[in-house]
Design a protein around this nucleic acid. Structure first.
Lengths: 212, 212
DNA sequence: CAGAACACTAAACGTGCGTACAGCATCGGG
DNA sequence: CCCGATGCTGTACGCACGTTTAGTGTTCTG
């Protein structure tokens, strides 16, 4: 009853939404109770229902809020596309995540939930990012910055999936290489190696492709 | 009461475990009830508790079963390591998944769940696969099949993560490129493009690395 | 300044959950 | 032949969940 003002001057509704976003991202929708969300937001459970109609309504509100945040990222993406083509310093989705969301933001983890639970909203997001990746690679191929390929669909999916993998497996990668790959230091170290592989390759030559 | 024999000559206990594995993989532990598992296995809910003690006991049994399946994959991995080095036809984890698990197996989806919820078993699995990837790349570097890198830790993580991403984002990739990447046809198409990028790169040159 | 609208709470309700318990067949060993 | 063990079911219990309801201040508005 006193921690409503914990998050600055946010309204109680926004506080509830933020608490739900964080808890949903950490543990999944099913594992979080309305009472927990209310406690985390410092309000009564009934107020959650009062503002959002039901737990599922809250879920939809959180989904919409996250989608808007990701769309903002997407718009920035579109805007920087031309700059990327001319400037030459490419930027991955993971890099944009690291830049756009301050350390500790629950949004990367929420995206992970969405993608791995086969949420339709995440499928739409993936589709848009896939289309963008394809367009970007096409443009870069036209200007000679990227080698042509027989299978541009798979190449675009490969690039996108590699990028998202860093968000999906963030914790495991952090444990493996000793630095969180979504921090500025981590993303720099990661991008350096990835750029090297994407530019010159890693395998020296291909002795054979398929045995039979 | 009659579908116990639906899965051949399996015992009821194994039938329950399989049903739980499939349901857990599809919808997550929390979203599946003991009554659903029992119905899917064609037994009474009480029998689930009788055989596994509790829902959590069932979860542990399923985890152990899945871990054994993944360990078998891992052993095959170790065995094929030398062959890979000499034969030259490299094999990704995703390829081994496609080979080892027949179409429709719930195990890929279960691995996805394990990684999603930051299960310690999944962390251990990731750690072992990461070590294996690092060893493999080291060996291949020694014999001149892979270019040396300043940051072998990140390179190993990059390769592993790209591989796992195909399992994690299987559905989205299937929707994007029009073929399930964990089927023989899909994995062949995917591997061809990935090998090309890993061998010759995709970017023509690197104009700049980091602006400031 | 009356009164509607709004933000919010305490308490309770009904449902579906995991689980416990008692009992019923079937069967192998003394 | 019996009898403990095993596999399995029907029923019921207690609890935690999402949600409802009734009510209390507090704030806009005419």
């Amino acid at each position: 009853m006193s921690s409503v003002a914990d998050e600055g001057d946010l309204t109680a509704k926004a506080t509830i939404r933020n608490a739900a976003l964080r808890l949903f991202a950490e543990r999944g929708h099913d594992a979080v109770t309305v009472r927990e969300i209310a406690a985390a937001a410092g309000v009564s459970p009934a107020l959650v229902v009062h503002h959002f109609g039901s737990k599922d309504g809250l879920r939809e509100a959180v989904d919409g809020y996250a989608a808007k945040a990701f769309d903002a990222l997407f718009a920035m993406d579109e805007h920087d596309l031309a700059e990327m083509l001319t400037g030459g310093n490419s930027m991955s989705i993971a890099e944009m995540f690291a830049r756009a969301f301050p350390h500790g933001s629950p949004l990367p983890a929420y995206l992970r939930r969405l993608l791995l639970v086969n949420d339709p909203a995440a499928a739409a997001l993936f589709g848009r990012w896939y289309a963008l990746t394809g367009r970007l690679l096409d443009s870069m191929t036209e200007i000679g910055a990227v080698r042509p390929t027989e299978d541009p669909a798979v190449r675009a999916a490969f690039f996108l999936v590699n990028d998202l993998a860093l968000i999906l497996l963030r914790n495991q990668v952090a444990a493996a290489i000793g630095v969180d790959p979504l921090t500025p230091e981590g993303v720099a170290r990661w991008a350096k190696e990835v750029t090297a592989v994407y530019t010159t390759g890693a395998f020296v030559s291909a002795p054979r492709q398929e045995p039979s």
